[in-house]
Design a protein around this nucleic acid. Structure first.
Length: 425
RNA sequence: GGAGAGGUGGCCGAGUGGUUGAAGGCGCAGCACUGGAAAUGCUGUUUGGGGGUAACCUCAACGAGGGUUCGAAUCCCUCCCUCUCCGCCA
């Protein structure tokens, strides 16, 4: 959520920053805000009067006046008068607040000053490349879905019977490889200082609201209808929300978590895109990194987070590049975001395998995640960050393609071999 | 699913209609004492909104939402959550 006070104090500057993401009309928010505050002044003055009457009645009763004594009658009546007016003002103000809140919730985060301006994916900025020396030699590389079916390590057709299209069943060595990747990724991130959590995979609406998936992107997630529960689209949601509504101490920061979870996405509106293979599924596994940090350190923490995700690709010797998203491609809640894109030889292009975002205080404000500096008055909002470390299915796809050998077998990355107890797939 | 108990400040815990935003304790911060520390003593210490250049003023919040009342943490209603026992179950 954006900072209403900041908007109110500096609407011009604010909308200019937001305009880099596209057009947003902030005037209705400013109007509602003004009306609401006007009503609030009126209402709280009346309430103050009413409180004063209550207090003076209380004082007299304590002094010995009988509560039903006629001399209190006037006081009671004037208090009743005030109540009549309040009964009108209160619902009006409440209604304005609800409207204001819902408008605020659908305004995206301000892009960071350093985020490049642009309209779409096309204008993302490549930051660096790694691993050109690991690009596979030019023989006829099968796309990973063909290779995988051939090797018998996963099956799509049978999965459709069980669920729908865009679900996969991993079989034998495929299942083992997925598990090995999860284990490997967790091991590395735990060694890098992240505390592992296994959060709930079903999450409530409030949690989705805090991290920004609701209210605008309800159609992206699977809802468990009779309950207020959704299938988690990413561990970002349950892990960040562990701290919702809390006031932490500065000493507790930074908090680093890693989490393996399955992720569930409806992928509405992506019909026909990536219909084959492991790239775009309704259910996939991911190891996620989440950081809750002091605002002063968030930029630096962001860089480190990206490096922690990169370390996995490097250890697996998978060629990739780092791309900084431009304002037009930035997620709703993000202020700044780097994508890691792994090389997929069959498509001859880089594909996103990790997305590392700094949300600033946007999620913290929505979720009420604050901290207190010892000895200082008041609280501040933390900064939240997260990134994939990595998407497991896409990692498997990248391994199947990049490590493919001319005879159609796959030589596993060295680092994974001990996890699987074999070299060749 | 059935029966019962309970949800109060960073934590523990008192408080069943009248200056109670809330006793007491712990914790934390400052000061004093000390060569330094411990112990001790004193002082301070919830959060959010609004108004004001400021000093400051004011409203709200005792799980959430309604209600009764001049006045509610305290009474009534609804909902949520937690705990204990029973049932069911991986």
């Amino acid at each position: 959520m954006i900072d209403l006070k900041q908007l109110r104090d500096n609407p011009q500057q604010f909308s200019e920053r937001l305009r880099r993401r596209g057009a947003y009309d902030l005037q209705p928010i400013l109007d509602l805000d003004r009306q609401q505050r006007q009503l609030e002044v009126e209402r709280s003055q009346l309430q103050a009067q009413s409180n004063a009457i209550g207090k003076s009645v209380g004082e007299r009763v304590r002094g010995g006046t009988h509560p039903q004594d006629p001399e209190l009658k006037d006081l009671r009546e004037s208090a009743n008068q005030i109540k009549v007016t309040l009964a009108e003002l209160e619902p009006q103000e409440k209604e304005l607040k609800v409207q204001l809140e819902s408008l605020l919730l659908s305004v995206p985060n301000l892009p960071s000053e350093s985020t490049p301006t642009g309209n779409s994916e096309e204008e993302n900025v490549e930051v660096r490349r790694w691993g050109d020396e690991h690009l596979p030699q030019n023989f006829n590389i099968l796309p990973h879905w063909e290779l995988g079916e051939k090797l018998g390590i996963f099956n799509f057709e049978r999965s459709v019977k069980v669920a729908q299209s865009r679900f996969v069943t991993l079989i034998g060595a495929g299942a083992a490889l997925e598990r090995a990747l999860i284990q490997f990724m967790l091991d590395r991130q735990i060694a890098a200082g992240y505390i592992e959590v296994i959060p709930p995979f079903l999450i409530n609406s409030q949690s989705l609201m805090a991290t920004g998936q609701l209210p605008k992107f309800a159609e992206e997630s699977f809802k468990c209808e009779p309950d207020d529960l959704w299938l988690s689209p990413t561990a970002e949601v349950p892990v960040t929300n562990l701290y919702r509504g809390e006031i932490l101490t500065a000493a507790e920061l930074p908090i680093y978590h890693c989490a393996y979870t399955p992720c569930f996405r409806r992928e509405a509106g992506s019909y026909g895109r990536d219909t084959r293979g492991l790239i775009r599924l309704h259910q996939f596994n991911k190891v996620e990194l989440v950081k809750i940090v002091h605002p002063q350190t968030s930029e630096q923490e962001h860089q480190m987070l990206v490096q922690d995700a990169e370390a996995i690709l490097q250890a697996l010797k998978l060629p990739y590049r780092v791309v900084e998203l431009c304002t037009g491609d930035l997620g709703f809640a993000a202020a700044k975001c780097y994508d890691l894109e792994v090389w997929l030889p069959s498509a001859k292009r880089y594909r996103e395998i990790s997305s590392c975002s700094n949300f600033g205080d946007f999620q913290a404000r929505r979720g009420g995640i604050r901290f207190k500096e010892t000895g200082q008055k008041g609280t501040q909002f933390v900064h939240t960050l997260n990134g994939s470390g990595l998407a497991v299915g896409r990692t498997m796809a990248a391994i199947l393609e990049n490590y493919q050998q001319p005879d159609g077998s796959v030589r596993l990355p060295k680092i994974l071999q001990p996890y699987l107890g074999r070299e060749i797939l």
